[in-house]
């Protein structure tokens, strides 16, 4: 029961975030819905270097859950898990696309009431998937992924 008991049942959040990952800097928005002491969130981002500086749209969709282990009136902190999917078309020729899957875990904190600031630090697996022209089939290459994120949140 302790895990489902919280102070802010039913609160919604909208946030904008700027984060650095292994694949690019990303900027995006996130919607969160509190259910007891957990917050379920989903968001959309775009890779800044590719999209802004190279005019190539690099979108990312993400979702996850944040458990507010420490849940004070103006401050909360706890573990977070997140899955994200990003897609990049780097060339107009056939097979010139690649997708990135990331499954990360880490820590998140937030400070404030209606307007909040926060940080999210994640580490986990990053898998790049694309069709190899030498193997003539899709190949997946994995390594360690990370996310260093700064959030600005409005709670309502």
């Amino acid at each position: 029961m302790l895990f489902v008991w919280g102070k802010s049942f039913g609160q919604n959040t909208i946030s904008t975030s700027f984060n650095y990952t292994k694949t690019d800097f990303f900027h995006g928005i996130e919607y969160g819905r509190d259910v007891y002491t957990c917050s379920f969130f989903a968001g959309f981002e775009y890779g800044v270097n590719r999209t802004v500086f190279q005019s190539r749209f690099f979108p990312k969709a993400k979702g996850g859950v944040y458990y507010r282990a420490l849940n004070k009136e103006k401050f909360n902190l706890g573990p977070v898990i997140q899955y994200s999917y990003a897609y990049l078309r780097y060339s107009k020729i056939p097979d010139g696309t690649v997708s990135y899957h990331e499954l990360n875990g880490g820590l998140r904190w937030r400070y404030g009431q209606h307007w909040q600031i926060g940080q999210t630090l994640l580490i986990g697996g990053l898998w790049e998937r694309g069709r190899s022209t030498i193997y003539q089939q899709p190949v997946t290459s994995g390594t360690l992924g990370f996310t260093l994120q700064i959030d600005c949140i409005y709670a309502f």
Binding site: Y90, S91, I93, P94, D95, G96, G130, R131, S132, T133, I134, Y135, V139, S141
Partner: peptide
């Protein structure tokens, strides 16, 4: 070897 083959397998 992995880096060489990832690069050579990249379209273009």
């Amino acid at each position: 070897l992995e880096a060489v083959e990832l690069a050579l397998g990249t379209a273009g």
